[in-house]
């Protein structure tokens, strides 16, 4: 399958989880892919993928990333802002360093990459930001994370409005996707196993999401099939937020 043949893509935070699944999906569809993260090149990353060690919250790193992507690809067709961190604290417990860590990556990082790459994106380019259902309704004890994702949703709309029709910009708002971040969130509850079981019952789809589920929507948003879609925050959560929290949907 080659739905992205001839296209170039940059995916931030491609070391693991959702970012890694997007990198692999884009590669499988024929795109030339670059990804970045704060550590060294991860084991097992396909040799065809360009890796760069970079921190999205660091302006100099993003200038260097822009330089590398320009040399590798010329104009960029697809930018996926996936890099994100979470800290499980309320406002009262959050330190200045927590603010810098969460807002630096989740908010400033998206701003920095968009500012760097929008001027060099190909006409018809697509920006895909990873927002969250937590940007629309609050997860308890995740204040800065929730707020950072609401920022991503707002910036998504602004970019669509200011930089269309040349560039499209949409966000994906995943629900509970089984990654290390989800496990860390469940670990906050008194009984993580019971919390997980309860959460599962609230999903009409009967399961949690996978990084591949998110990658398949990212693929659609990167492809020509989404040519009329821009400025939207598309929720992908197995039906979780469509249902009231009062009663579990599923008996299973």
């Amino acid at each position: 399958m080659t739905r992205l043949a001839g296209k170039s893509a940059l995916v931030t935070g491609g070391r693991q989880g959702i970012g890694r699944a997007i990198v692999e999906a884009f590669l499988a569809e024929g795109a030339a892919v670059m990804t970045c993260g704060r550590g060294d090149r991860p084991d097992g990353l396909d040799g065809a993928v360009h890796w760069m060690t970079a921190d999205v919250s660091d302006g100099r790193d993003m200038d260097a990333l822009k330089q590398s992507a320009g040399e590798a690809f010329g104009a960029l067709d697809i930018l996926v802002n996936n890099a994100g961190v979470q800290i499980e604290k309320t406002v009262a417990d959050s330190s200045d360093a927590d603010w810098d860590a969460v807002m630096g990556v989740n908010a400033k990082g998206v701003f920095l990459t968009c500012r760097a790459f929008i001027p060099v994106m190909a006409s018809g380019g697509s920006i895909i930001n990873i927002g969250s259902i937590s940007g629309m309704a609050a997860d308890p004890g995740m204040a800065l994370y929730n707020a950072s994702k609401a920022f991503v949703h707002g910036l998504t709309r602004s970019i669509a409005v200011d930089h269309g029709p040349g560039v499209r910009c949409n966000a994906i708002c995943p629900g509970w996707i089984m990654t290390g971040m989800a496990d860390a969130a469940f670990a906050q509850s008194r009984d993580p196993a019971a919390a997980k079981e309860d959460a599962l019952k609230r999903h009409p789809a009967g399961r949690f999401g996978t990084p591949e589920d998110v990658a398949r929507l990212a693929l659609w948003l990167a492809s020509e099939d989404s040519a009329f879609a821009t400025g939207q925050c598309y929720t992908l959560d197995g039906g979780l937020t469509a249902a009231s929290p009062i009663r579990a949907c599923s008996d299973g």
């Binding site: 499209r168 789809a205 398949r216 659609w220 009329f228 400025g231 939207q232 992908l236 039906g239």
Partner: peptide, 20 residues
Amino acid sequence: DEARYASGQLWVIDGGLSAQ
């Protein structure tokens, strides 16, 4: 089947109109 985890959602597709 690519959308196998998508359910219960309202998918707006409007050329960006309602973002503005």
